[in-house]
């Protein structure tokens, strides 16, 4: 798919995110918007998947390790045709399939239930190992928060992915520089992320996480890299696409009110 088309889809994904979180009255817009381009690229270009057959043998799998960004995964799956977009507007409501954090038993296309940071990445190591054992061509992708990588478990998983030469696994870090209590740099320094992954034996690519040419090129480079896993450090902006949310930690876990949601949707070129 060309980058113009991907940009258009990412806009729709962002609109869906805003509408769903507004309807829910709670949720995490900042980290959903920062990941929208990466997740769109995965579902619409990179991954070998079939919305009509979510459990297709040999498919690629995506695990949203930073599970609080569930709305971005729901929106990408909806736009890709796994279910109607309207369905996800019940987000976070009692009885909804669209839980505050993704549940693999409720929503087609969700490969792993997440929400507790750090675990998705380590589960991916197991999935990648299984695919190696079974000579399954499916590749395993995971998206990590830059605050999430403060978890020790991330580095235990980084060590094992490298030790077992899991070149069928790709970890993307949504490097928006923010977490809940503020900037990563103020809460707990994670820099240098690229050097850390390199030291753990990973192939590392640093990109602009809002530039589709760079995102697609990084996925291609990961595929061509043999014998070790690839980490893509994607420089992003939290709240990307909505002027008043951009780079503001205050929008990590807060729903826009009607006026704000309307403005956000307009800025994104969507219809309210």
């Amino acid at each position: 798919m060309n980058t113009k088309e991907l940009e258009q889809i990412a806009k729709k994904v962002r609109v869906d995110i805003i509408k769903a979180i507004h309807a829910a009255g709670s949720g995490h817009p900042g980290g959903s918007l920062s990941a929208a381009d990466i997740v769109t690229a995965l579902y619409f270009d990179e991954m070998n998947i079939d919305p009509a057959n979510p459990k297709m043998e040999g498919r690629d799998k995506f695990v949203l390790s930073k599970g609080h960004a569930g709305p971005v995964q729901y929106a990408a799956l909806a736009e890709r045709g796994y279910f109607p977009v309207e369905d996800m507007m019940s987000l976070r409501k009692l009885g909804s399939k669209f839980q505050g954090h993704p549940n693999m038993h409720y929503v087609p296309g969700i490969e792993m239930s997440t929400g507790s940071l750090g675990q998705g990445m380590a589960v991916c190591v197991g999935m990648a190992l299984a695919n190696k054992m079974d000579e399954n061509p499916g590749r395993i992708y995971t998206l990590l928060g830059d605050g999430e990588i403060q978890e020790g478990l991330i580095w235990e998983a980084a060590m094992s992915a490298s030790h077992y030469h899991l070149d069928n696994m790709v970890a993307i870090v949504d490097n928006n520089g923010l977490q809940i209590d503020g900037k990563n740099d103020d809460v707990m320094t994670v820099k240098p992320i690229d050097e850390k992954f390199k030291a753990f034996g990973w192939h590392v690519v640093v990109i602009d996480g809002h530039n589709f040419d760079e995102i697609l090129a990084a996925f291609k480079e990961a595929k061509e890299t043999k014998g070790r896993p690839t980490a893509i450090i994607a420089k992003t902006h939290k709240g990307q696409g909505v002027s008043f949310m951009a780079d503001d930690p205050g929008w990590h876990g807060k729903a826009p009110n009607e006026e704000q949601a309307k403005q956000a949707v307009e800025e994104l070129g969507g219809e309210w």
């Binding site: 976070r92 839980q99 505050g100 954090h101 997440t114 929400g115 507790s116």
Partner: peptide
């Protein structure tokens, strides 16, 4: 905890 759901 409410809306965050089962994981929390």
């Amino acid at each position: 905890v409410g809306e965050d759901g089962a994981s929390h």
